[in-house]
């Protein structure tokens, strides 16, 4: 069957089997490699994408379920500048080791900061409970998200002043 949805700001049309999951459509059919296959069991968060602006696991979503909806991934949000403060913060504090989980964390963190621009440490931890990182022990990821929250605030105030 044909489905069409907005992927990273563009309308895409793609032929899918109903029993395919979004993760495979993105990786194998649409070449979106930043969405990672970690467990395929909705347990690790590596395949996180934004569906209509909310973080979800692309490994548990049947392809036809996204028909007509909006999917965003890290590549896009990084290229249009939306993620800049988060990327900067992750790089700066050393929150990235193997990097396999990082796109998933950025998307979750981005959604959190839109919902809650100044989260507490506990709120950050709760938001990222569904993203597993096996390298960093999370401390620097949490630190990076808190730093990004400040950087976004600076950006907002610059915009106001400008």
């Amino acid at each position: 069957m044909k489905i069409s949805f907005t992927l990273n700001g563009r309308r895409v049309e793609v032929d899918v089997e109903p029993n395919e999951v979004l993760l495979d459509v993105l990786r194998l059919k649409l070449g979106v490699k930043s969405v990672r296959r970690g467990c395929e069991r909705a347990e690790c968060g590596a395949c996180t994408v934004l569906l209509d602006g909310k973080p979800v696991y692309s490994c548990t979503i049947l392809a036809p379920m996204v028909d007509g909806r909006t999917v965003e991934t890290v590549d896009y949000l990084a290229s249009n500048g939306e993620l800049k403060p988060l990327v900067e913060a992750f790089v700066k504090v050393g929150a990235i080791q193997c990097g396999f989980c990082t796109p998933g964390f950025l998307l979750t963190a981005y959604s959190l900061l839109r919902r809650n621009p100044q989260p507490t440490v506990e709120e950050v931890k709760k938001a990222i409970e569904g993203n597993i990182c096996r390298c960093t022990g999370y401390q620097k990821i949490i630190e990076a998200i808190l730093l990004a929250s400040k950087l976004y605030a600076e950006k907002r105030s610059e915009r106001k002043e400008g």
Binding site: R27, K33, S34, V35, R36, R37, T73, V74, D75, A78, S79, L83, L86, V87, F90, V91, K92, G94, I96, C98, G99, F100, T102, P103, L106
Partner: peptide, 18 residues
């Protein structure tokens, strides 16, 4: 800062399955 951090952050770094 690590040389690979930026590419990893924006999902450009390539792993085997890619």
């Amino acid at each position: 800062e690590r040389a690979d951090a930026f590419d990893k952050a924006i999902g450009k770094a390539r792993f085997v399955e890619d």
